Amino acid sequence: MTGRVIEKEGFAALALRLRGEGISDLELLTAVEQTPRTLFVPPQFSGDAYSSRLLPLDCGAFMEGIDLAVRLLYILNLKSGQRVLEVGTGSGFTAAVMGRLTERVLTIDRYRTLVSGAQQAIEKAGLRNVVVRQVDGSNGMTGEGTFDRILVTAAFPALPRFFAEQLVSGGMLVAPVMVSETECRMLKLVKTGSRFDREDLFTVPYLPIVPHVAQAI
């Protein structure tokens, strides 16, 4: 099966599944369709690019199934003109889709190998407003100003308030938190003035965040 056929059939099946979940945002779905996921998955898993299963990446990382990825993007309610921070670049797919919907995306990861691979895939996808950096994201992103949206894909032991402080008023943080040794839950935090409104969303498969930049990989 060629890459083009995988993309076409995979997206069509995805759109049907998402519609069943009540996700029919045309701008979001168009951004997903315009971002070929086969550019971001390891070549040996290209046939699973549009599946809901976790796919392994280098450095012991993984990319979430596309259903979960789009579900998170839908929750973020991304709009033109927004600045977005993503903590945990992974394959770069989510950052690329966000780049089609917003003004600027800064995505960070501790692994040089993942940063390099994501950068190449994002460039192939034709995105010029997505910046990929190798950074330790375990203690926030000082010196980068504020963001309209922050998406975290590595689990913290508690809601990372240092990221919440980098939100503009009306901004949103979506982040996974380890609620027990074995369960990780996605939480949403919306900032209104100096007040934060928290919502518990659903269980996710993300791994605990690891501090420091990886030196060897």
Rank of each mutant, 00 (worst) to 15 (best):
R149V: 00
G90N: 13
P205R: 09
T146P: 07
H212R: 13
P211L: 02
T203Y: 08
V168R: 02
G140F: 04
M172S: 01
P36Q: 11
L54M: 05
G140I: 03
R110A: 15
G90A: 14
V213T: 11
R198S: 11
E64H: 13
R83E: 13
L55M: 15
F62R: 10
M141I: 13
P208D: 08
F162E: 06
G117E: 02
E64M: 06
S24Y: 03
V135E: 13
V210N: 02
Y111L: 14
I75F: 12
L187P: 06
F62C: 05
T102W: 04
R83I: 02
A96N: 10
G140T: 00
P176W: 07
T38Y: 08
L159D: 00
G20C: 04
V84E: 08
V190E: 14
T182Q: 12
Y206T: 08
L55F: 09
L68P: 03
G60M: 12
D58T: 06
V204F: 11
S180H: 13
M63V: 15
R133W: 01
R100M: 02
V174T: 01
V97N: 06
F162L: 04
P208K: 10
L14D: 14
I6L: 10
G20Y: 03
Q215I: 14
S138P: 07
N139E: 07
P211A: 11
P208Y: 01
F196Y: 12
I217F: 11
E7H: 07
D48S: 04
V174G: 03
L78R: 01
F196M: 04
D148H: 04
T94P: 00
I209Y: 02
T113C: 14
R185D: 14
V204T: 11
Q166D: 04
T89W: 01
K79H: 09
L189R: 11
T38R: 13
V105Q: 10
L16C: 03
T113S: 12
R19E: 07
N77T: 00
H212L: 11
G3V: 05
E21M: 11
E144C: 02
L114R: 02
L55Q: 00
R110G: 06
V115G: 05
N129I: 08
V190T: 15
